[in-house]
Nucleic acid binder design. Structure first.
Lengths: 192, 192, 192, 192
DNA sequence: AATGAATGAGACTTCATTCAT
DNA sequence: AATGAATGAAGTCTCATTCAT
């Protein structure tokens, strides 16, 4: 007699389950955000993805492999979100104020995104293998900015955004919006 | 007065050793730089400090405690070095070019310092307890810059230095010095 | 009818494949020789035989079953080779020098054969089920020798060959050929 | 009041325990004899030695290290026992009959010793690192025999003993004592 | 004040085997 | 007949911490 209950108490665990790999990657990012790379274990990720422990090393070639894929996805998604955000701007002036908003109110400031970014940077600082991800991410950001600004200005803005979001996040006191606006204006004011 | 047996072949481990605590902290930073916070263990630090394993939990109240002390020392030393560097400048113009040099050729770019900084940021992003260290560090940097620039300019410069050193380090391709100079000039040109 | 794509670049794994079972057994011996019985896993054998993992437990009733079949084949092949070698001799004298040659220069000494033999003996020492293989092998060797020597002499020679090849293999220094010749001569000299 | 019970039900596990290392090595040999090298795990050895699992890798540098030490001890003990046995002989004739007895009734034939020897040989066949143990063992056996026989005879006898004990053990039928006596006599009869 | 043997939890990983397709 | 994703048990090893000395 066929059991049709998708999740009976006896835990019949999905057998056929495409997207399992994808789910693991997403769960991995959740775990990293919550416990840090150093606290990310196969066990925790498996539990978060509702997947057996054995699936971890079946689908990924060890922890390093999983982390690489997870950060790859994160960087790609984040870059895409930034691009989408900027694409809604119709002029350099709008772009400038979008950047101020991004720095001061951006989702980045507090939680998940900051942490994931930092974890990625920390890994990339040590392992050149991950540096291709960060490099690609920077390229993407600058290309997005170059829709409104010249290459040099775009590179500066990119670094400025990086530094300011980071400082805002690591400061125990609130960051002054006027300072941010002034910075953007000095770097990209008028016709750059 | 001469110690009777400074280091006999059988290595009888120092018994009375007042700087033991200090040595452990320094060794801890070395280990972090080499293996990352996640790879830093009591065992490795003890070995690096030439200290018994039992000394670890005798002198420090667990790993978190040791890490906090280590990063405290690191941030303080780094801030002091930056201040010493800038104190040799006699004018805003000199200060500006010192900053360019700091970003492009600074020791930060490649090795130990970048890694330690990133490890600290990653921890601070998660644990508010460590955020006091980063906050104090930022305050110090800005105060150093305020010898030459107004507060707003100093804050912007501080963020810019942060962003650019980071991007330089995480990029697989070399960073353009002209861009750095342009950035400093736009933000702090003339009489700010 | 010819199979439409015997081995396309995408490696679509043979579907109909009658010698699959044989190939697995041969691959199993290769894996044993390379990694030992203890390092022999379904996965490794499947990969060596270019066969799917599922085929392992489909064709064989577990690892013990596969090992038994593999060693059966090995012992049979080895005994046949020995017999073929001795059959080329036309007199006891020739047989004696063939034995010396077998001990001193035989393929056994170094590689695959020694290892497989030892692995089989080790298993047989523990599991009586495999002892029928070793018993049959010994019977065959003695029967081969009995073409030239009486039964007692044959049994002694058989043991001597065993002991000397083993000692030669397990010694870090070369084995003295004169000693081997003397041994054969004492045991089987003249008209035994 | 101090608990003096050496092994209370609550399992207070010895804290201070010299000879622990020794006990582990002995337990390891027991486990090998019972389950084979391939069935020897840290868990089983720890349980057999009544020692915590963590002690395994604390005292030994991994399984390979433990195995090496265990077989080292086994070979040494076995060689010493053989020497003690032969030392009780007063003439070549006595030595010859001692050898016959050793082969036919020796403890080797059935259980623990045969298995341990085979396991050692199997490992040594693959790993040159262990071959120093087998080489040393053979040297010892021959030196023992050389008290009664010339070097060549001793080497032959050594190989003969090896081959005959092995064949006796691996045969499903009993080994004929007359054959053994004949062999020893042919090799070492009279004044060798 | 200092040591290092000892421990138990838990990390990663591999494996034989099952089972839906 | 054949596959390979999936699983849970078990393997080795590392670790922070305790504790008798």
């Amino acid at each position: 007699m066929a059991e049709s209950a998708p999740d009976s108490p006896a835990r019949p665990r999905r057998r056929h389950d495409p997207e399992r790999r994808d789910r693991i990657i997403d769960a991995c990012l959740d775990v990293i955000a919550e416990r840090g790379v150093s606290g990310t274990t196969h066990r925790l990720v498996a539990a978060a993805a509702d997947v057996s422990l054995g699936s971890m090393t079946y689908h990924f070639d060890g922890m390093a492999d999983l982390l690489r894929e997870a950060f790859e996805r994160f960087a790609r998604a984040f870059a895409a979100a930034f691009e989408a955000r900027m694409e809604r701007c119709d002029s350099p002036a709008e772009a400038r104020s979008a950047l101020v908003d991004h720095i001061v109110h951006g989702v980045f400031g507090t939680g998940r995104e900051l942490i994931l970014t930092q974890e990625l940077y920390t890994l990339a600082a040590r392992e050149p293998a991950l540096r291709s991800i960060t490099t690609r991410w920077m390229r993407s950001s600058r290309r997005t900015l170059e829709r409104f600004f010249d290459p040099t200005t775009s590179a500066i803005l990119d670094a400025l955004v990086e530094g300011m979001t980071l400082h805002r996040a690591l400061d125990t006191e609130p960051y002054d919006e006027g300072t941010v606006a002034a910075a953007i204006d000095r770097v990209a004011g008028d016709a750059r």
